[in-house]
Design a protein around this nucleic acid. Structure first.
Length: 261
DNA sequence: AGGACGCCCTGTTCGC
DNA sequence: TGCGAACAGGGCGTCC
């Protein structure tokens, strides 16, 4: 699930529930999700300290610590956060359970264990190490156009390349391309300035609307492909049946009439 | 360089 | 109803 809009909502959720309270201890249920750290090191680093602030870059969520550095959360395909004011049985598939001194608990839930929990000295270093591109909601037109200029290959895989633009995944890349009227396999180098403008605008519009809709397909604006993205779905604009193809190893849905190649 | 593919996991859905 | 296969919204490594 978690692409930029979902992670932004998790960020706000963490803000609303988990800031400014000292940690007590951490229970790691799935070692696999820890990246470059251990349950002991994580516990030592957090105990007695508080999360001061949050920041998101692409699909990564950073929560800065009062002692310096930050907790890093990445959600893979199925991760989410669940806070409870009182300690009780954590949700099924809790991979990491953060206990606060006031009795509250924050569960990092990851059914497929594909996400990661890490520590970093600074979000900026982390982003640099990963060579992540600019955040999809921050990228300006000049940077966007310059990035497109050098790219060979298809537009969908380019949008999903986190080292080019950070935050766009499979589902929202389909929506962005639909809103821009561009076929997923269109070569980036063949896009003219008008099309690139449309694309750049669609990125912002789609992601912003998705956040406002709480990333719930049922609450997307009319005219969004997302609720119709699947077998038997019809284009919300022209009623043509939506089509499925493989692109970069993932399933792309699009309207063959509105997004010709 | 970019794309296809396999893999990491587990839950759900679909076809027989 | 039961069971295996295919698939799911991420990302990494390998091969071509």
């Amino acid at each position: 699930m978690p692409e930029l809009p979902d992670v932004e909502l998790y960020r706000r959720y963490l803000d609303a529930t988990s800031l400014h309270q000292p940690f007590d201890h951490v229970e790691v249920e799935a070692l696999r999700v820890l990246e470059d750290t251990t349950p002991q090191a994580l516990g030592r680093r957090l105990k007695g300290h508080r999360l001061e602030d949050t920041r998101r870059h692409g699909k990564y969520l950073f929560a800065t610590l009062d002692s310096g550095g930050a907790l890093v959360l990445h959600f893979g395909m199925t991760g989410r956060l669940e806070y409870s004011r009182k300690a009780h049985d954590p949700p099924r598939h809790t991979a990491c359970l953060f206990h606060f001194g006031n009795g509250g608990q924050l569960a990092y839930v990851a059914p497929r264990k594909l996400g990661h929990v890490a520590l970093t000295d600074s979000p900026a270093h982390f982003i640099e190490d990963r060579a992540l591109g600019p955040d999809a909601l921050e990228i300006d037109w000049d940077t966007f156009r310059a990035a497109a200029g050098k790219r060979r290959g298809g537009v969908k895989s380019w949008l999903m390349d986190q080292q080019r633009i950070a935050g766009i995944g499979n589902v929202y890349s389909d929506e962005i391309l639909f809103q821009a009227g561009i076929h997923p396999k269109q070569a980036v180098r063949d896009l003219d300035d008008d099309e690139l403008r449309d694309l750049h605008r669609a990125i912002r519009e789609v992601l912003t609307a998705a956040i406002e809709a709480k990333a719930d397909p049922e609450h997307m604006p009319p005219g969004f492909l997302l609720p119709h993205r699947g077998e038997g779905g019809r284009c919300p604009r022209c009623r043509t049946g939506v089509k499925k193809i493989r692109a970069s190893g993932r399933t792309a849905w699009y309207c063959p009439a509105c997004q010709p190649l």
